[in-house]
Design a protein around this nucleic acid. Structure first.
Length: 223
DNA sequence: GCGACAG
DNA sequence: ATCTTGTCGC
Protein backbone atom coordinates (compact mmCIF):
# COMPACT_ATOMS: atom_id res chain seq x y z
CA UNK A 1 0.00 0.00 0.00
CA UNK A 2 1.05 3.57 -0.52
CA UNK A 3 2.56 5.34 2.49
CA UNK A 4 2.86 9.02 3.33
CA UNK A 5 6.27 10.60 3.63
CA UNK A 6 7.03 11.74 7.17
CA UNK A 7 10.57 13.02 6.70
CA UNK A 8 13.98 11.46 7.30
CA UNK A 9 14.28 8.43 9.55
CA UNK A 10 15.66 9.37 12.96
CA UNK A 11 19.04 7.90 13.81
CA UNK A 12 18.99 8.41 17.56
CA UNK A 13 16.53 8.80 20.43
CA UNK A 14 17.08 12.56 20.33
CA UNK A 15 16.17 12.73 16.68
CA UNK A 16 13.25 10.40 17.27
CA UNK A 17 11.94 12.65 20.06
CA UNK A 18 12.18 15.65 17.74
CA UNK A 19 10.27 13.76 15.07
CA UNK A 20 7.60 12.73 17.58
CA UNK A 21 7.17 16.33 18.71
CA UNK A 22 7.00 17.50 15.10
CA UNK A 23 4.38 14.94 14.08
CA UNK A 24 2.17 14.88 17.16
CA UNK A 25 0.08 17.91 16.14
CA UNK A 26 -0.94 16.03 12.98
CA UNK A 27 -2.67 13.27 14.95
CA UNK A 28 -6.46 13.28 14.94
CA UNK A 29 -7.59 11.42 18.07
CA UNK A 30 -11.32 11.76 17.33
CA UNK A 31 -14.04 10.48 15.08
CA UNK A 32 -16.19 7.39 14.70
CA UNK A 33 -13.60 5.47 12.69
CA UNK A 34 -14.86 2.91 10.19
CA UNK A 35 -18.53 2.19 10.93
CA UNK A 36 -18.61 -1.22 9.34
CA UNK A 37 -15.02 -2.20 8.48
CA UNK A 38 -14.61 -4.86 5.83
CA UNK A 39 -11.02 -5.61 6.78
CA UNK A 40 -8.91 -5.06 9.91
CA UNK A 41 -5.12 -5.35 10.01
CA UNK A 42 -2.86 -6.32 12.89
CA UNK A 43 0.83 -5.49 13.21
CA UNK A 44 3.45 -6.99 15.49
CA UNK A 45 7.22 -7.34 15.60
CA UNK A 46 9.51 -10.10 16.84
CA UNK A 47 13.24 -10.09 17.48
CA UNK A 48 15.50 -12.45 15.57
CA UNK A 49 17.62 -14.40 17.96
CA UNK A 50 21.34 -13.85 17.63
CA UNK A 51 21.09 -11.20 14.93
CA UNK A 52 20.53 -7.46 14.97
CA UNK A 53 17.34 -7.91 12.97
CA UNK A 54 13.66 -7.63 13.72
CA UNK A 55 10.79 -8.97 11.65
CA UNK A 56 7.47 -7.20 11.31
CA UNK A 57 4.28 -9.03 10.42
CA UNK A 58 1.07 -7.54 9.05
CA UNK A 59 -2.07 -9.64 8.93
CA UNK A 60 -5.24 -8.45 7.22
CA UNK A 61 -8.38 -10.13 8.55
CA UNK A 62 -11.88 -10.19 7.18
CA UNK A 63 -13.62 -8.13 9.85
CA UNK A 64 -16.65 -10.36 9.82
CA UNK A 65 -15.14 -13.82 9.96
CA UNK A 66 -11.74 -12.83 11.41
CA UNK A 67 -10.14 -15.00 8.76
CA UNK A 68 -6.85 -13.79 7.22
CA UNK A 69 -7.09 -12.46 3.69
CA UNK A 70 -3.46 -11.35 3.37
CA UNK A 71 -0.25 -11.70 5.37
CA UNK A 72 3.12 -9.98 4.89
CA UNK A 73 6.40 -10.01 6.74
CA UNK A 74 9.51 -7.88 6.38
CA UNK A 75 12.90 -7.87 8.03
CA UNK A 76 15.07 -4.90 8.97
CA UNK A 77 18.05 -4.12 11.15
CA UNK A 78 17.00 -3.07 14.61
CA UNK A 79 19.76 -0.49 14.70
CA UNK A 80 19.12 0.58 18.27
CA UNK A 81 18.54 -1.14 21.57
CA UNK A 82 15.05 -0.71 22.96
CA UNK A 83 14.43 2.45 24.95
CA UNK A 84 11.13 3.27 26.62
CA UNK A 85 9.22 5.77 24.51
CA UNK A 86 11.19 4.92 21.40
CA UNK A 87 9.81 1.60 20.30
CA UNK A 88 9.30 2.94 16.79
CA UNK A 89 12.98 3.75 16.42
CA UNK A 90 13.62 0.04 16.57
CA UNK A 91 10.53 -1.42 14.96
CA UNK A 92 9.25 1.07 12.42
CA UNK A 93 11.69 0.32 9.56
CA UNK A 94 10.49 -3.28 9.46
CA UNK A 95 6.85 -2.26 9.94
CA UNK A 96 7.11 0.23 7.10
CA UNK A 97 8.55 -2.39 4.75
CA UNK A 98 5.78 -4.85 5.60
CA UNK A 99 3.08 -2.22 5.06
CA UNK A 100 4.57 -1.23 1.70
CA UNK A 101 4.28 -4.84 0.57
CA UNK A 102 0.60 -4.95 1.50
CA UNK A 103 -1.85 -5.17 -1.41
CA UNK A 104 -5.02 -4.56 0.58
CA UNK A 105 -5.69 -1.20 2.18
CA UNK A 106 -7.34 -2.16 5.48
CA UNK A 107 -10.20 -0.12 6.95
CA UNK A 108 -8.61 -0.21 10.42
CA UNK A 109 -5.19 -1.09 11.83
CA UNK A 110 -4.51 -2.44 15.33
CA UNK A 111 -0.94 -1.90 16.49
CA UNK A 112 0.93 -3.61 19.27
CA UNK A 113 1.80 -0.97 21.87
CA UNK A 114 0.78 2.59 22.59
CA UNK A 115 -0.98 5.27 20.63
CA UNK A 116 -1.33 8.61 22.38
CA UNK A 117 -0.73 6.96 25.78
CA UNK A 118 2.92 7.83 25.35
CA UNK A 119 5.39 10.25 27.00
CA UNK A 120 5.14 12.59 23.99
CA UNK A 121 1.65 11.48 22.94
CA UNK A 122 3.05 9.81 19.86
CA UNK A 123 3.37 6.07 20.22
CA UNK A 124 3.74 3.56 17.43
CA UNK A 125 0.02 3.51 16.58
CA UNK A 126 0.07 7.27 15.91
CA UNK A 127 3.10 6.86 13.70
CA UNK A 128 1.46 4.09 11.69
CA UNK A 129 -1.72 6.16 11.45
CA UNK A 130 0.04 9.10 9.85
CA UNK A 131 2.10 6.80 7.65
CA UNK A 132 -0.94 5.00 6.23
CA UNK A 133 -3.68 7.60 6.74
CA UNK A 134 -5.82 4.69 7.95
CA UNK A 135 -7.57 4.78 11.35
CA UNK A 136 -5.30 3.11 13.94
CA UNK A 137 -5.59 1.80 17.49
CA UNK A 138 -2.82 0.93 19.95
CA UNK A 139 -3.29 -2.12 22.17
CA UNK A 140 -0.59 -2.65 24.80
CA UNK A 141 -0.16 -5.70 26.99
CA UNK A 142 1.27 -3.74 29.89
CA UNK A 143 0.20 -0.42 31.41
CA UNK A 144 2.04 2.86 30.90
CA UNK A 145 2.03 3.30 34.66
CA UNK A 146 -0.13 2.64 37.70
CA UNK A 147 -3.78 2.19 36.89
CA UNK A 148 -7.09 1.50 38.53
CA UNK A 149 -8.29 -2.06 38.00
CA UNK A 150 -11.60 -2.27 36.13
CA UNK A 151 -14.43 -4.50 37.34
CA UNK A 152 -14.07 -8.16 36.34
CA UNK A 153 -16.79 -8.18 33.68
CA UNK A 154 -15.83 -8.27 30.03
CA UNK A 155 -16.18 -4.76 28.61
CA UNK A 156 -15.58 -2.87 31.85
CA UNK A 157 -12.82 -0.32 31.86
CA UNK A 158 -11.06 2.46 33.76
CA UNK A 159 -9.56 5.62 32.28
CA UNK A 160 -5.83 6.08 31.90
CA UNK A 161 -5.06 9.62 32.90
CA UNK A 162 -1.91 11.58 32.18
CA UNK A 163 -1.98 15.01 33.76
CA UNK A 164 -5.31 16.54 32.74
CA UNK A 165 -5.81 14.27 29.78
CA UNK A 166 -7.46 10.90 29.38
CA UNK A 167 -5.03 9.12 27.09
CA UNK A 168 -6.44 5.61 27.10
CA UNK A 169 -8.29 2.86 28.94
CA UNK A 170 -7.55 -0.31 30.82
CA UNK A 171 -10.11 -2.55 29.13
CA UNK A 172 -11.29 -5.95 30.27
CA UNK A 173 -11.59 -8.10 27.14
CA UNK A 174 -12.48 -11.31 29.02
CA UNK A 175 -14.10 -11.84 32.39
CA UNK A 176 -11.55 -11.85 35.20
CA UNK A 177 -8.60 -11.66 32.83
CA UNK A 178 -5.96 -8.93 33.13
CA UNK A 179 -7.01 -5.90 31.08
CA UNK A 180 -5.35 -4.63 27.92
CA UNK A 181 -4.37 -1.00 27.52
CA UNK A 182 -6.08 0.74 24.64
CA UNK A 183 -5.17 4.13 23.26
CA UNK A 184 -6.04 5.97 20.11
CA UNK A 185 -3.60 6.09 17.23
CA UNK A 186 -5.14 8.31 14.55
CA UNK A 187 -8.51 9.15 12.97
CA UNK A 188 -10.66 7.41 15.60
CA UNK A 189 -11.95 8.24 19.07
CA UNK A 190 -11.43 6.21 22.23
CA UNK A 191 -15.01 4.93 22.50
CA UNK A 192 -14.99 3.53 18.99
CA UNK A 193 -11.47 2.17 19.48
CA UNK A 194 -12.55 0.17 22.54
CA UNK A 195 -15.62 -1.12 20.71
CA UNK A 196 -13.43 -2.50 17.96
CA UNK A 197 -10.94 -4.04 20.37
CA UNK A 198 -13.77 -5.75 22.23
CA UNK A 199 -15.27 -7.03 19.03
CA UNK A 200 -11.90 -8.43 17.91
CA UNK A 201 -11.12 -10.04 21.26
CA UNK A 202 -12.04 -13.72 21.49
CA UNK A 203 -9.25 -14.04 24.03
CA UNK A 204 -7.38 -11.45 26.04
CA UNK A 205 -5.71 -9.95 22.97
CA UNK A 206 -7.52 -9.07 19.74
CA UNK A 207 -7.25 -11.64 16.96
CA UNK A 208 -5.31 -9.13 14.88
CA UNK A 209 -2.55 -9.00 17.49
CA UNK A 210 -2.53 -12.74 18.08
CA UNK A 211 -2.25 -13.53 14.39
CA UNK A 212 0.43 -10.92 13.76
CA UNK A 213 2.37 -12.05 16.83
CA UNK A 214 2.41 -15.66 15.74
CA UNK A 215 3.37 -14.80 12.17
CA UNK A 216 6.20 -12.50 13.29
CA UNK A 217 7.47 -15.13 15.71
CA UNK A 218 7.45 -17.86 13.07
CA UNK A 219 9.17 -15.63 10.54
CA UNK A 220 11.82 -14.59 13.09
CA UNK A 221 12.79 -18.22 13.57
CA UNK A 222 13.47 -18.63 9.87
CA UNK A 223 15.85 -15.66 9.61
C1' DG B 1 -3.27 -34.09 25.95
C1' DC B 2 -2.92 -29.38 23.99
C1' DG B 3 -3.69 -24.67 24.14
C1' DA B 4 -4.40 -20.70 27.09
C1' DC B 5 -2.82 -18.07 30.74
C1' DA B 6 -0.49 -16.39 35.20
C1' DG B 7 3.83 -14.60 37.27
C1' DA C 1 10.97 -9.08 23.79
C1' DT C 2 12.22 -14.06 25.47
C1' DC C 3 12.51 -18.17 28.51
C1' DT C 4 10.98 -21.54 32.06
C1' DT C 5 7.68 -23.79 34.93
C1' DG C 6 3.23 -25.07 36.69
C1' DT C 7 -1.86 -25.10 36.69
C1' DC C 8 -6.47 -24.82 34.42
C1' DG C 9 -10.08 -26.25 31.36
C1' DC C 10 -12.23 -28.07 26.85
Amino acid sequence: MHLQTLGPSPASPDEAAAQQERLRPLVDPTGPGPTDPRTVAGIDVADCEGTDEVVAAVVVLDARTLRPVETRTACARAGHPYEPGFLALRELPAVTAALEALEHVPDLIVCDGAGVAHPRRFGMACHVGLLTDVPTIGVAKSPPGPYEMPKPARGSWTPQVDGDDVVGRALRTQHGVRPVFVSVGHRIGLDAACDHVLRLARHRLPETTRRADRLARDAALRV
